[in-house]
Amino acid sequence: MTIFIPTPLRTFAGGQDAVEVNATTISEALAKLTETHPELRRHLFTAEGKLRAFVNVYFNDEDVRYLPAKEATAVTAADTLSIIPSIAGGWTN
């Protein structure tokens, strides 16, 4: 499957905007991504191995957090994962 890497994380993925991995589940795909590009791990996961709160992962057009099987969801070579850090703010301190 193809994992799309957002602009800020490309420097930790060899400058690539997309990485191909062979995997059967979303969690396996993310594990293979960080095995190939270890520097990505601390940007995506907490020390406990959970996705950081501001990191969104989309399986095709679906938020992985809301999939019934979440990261255990089965994937095929034609599927895509998009990593999207959150975007928010506002003038209130």
Partner: peptide, 17 residues
């Protein structure tokens, strides 16, 4: 000017706000 909320919620390193 960026606020503390803008800063706390900014995660796109290397990008423009």
């Amino acid at each position: 000017q960026w606020s503390s909320t803008d800063f706390a919620e900014a995660h796109w390193l290397g990008c423009c706000y």
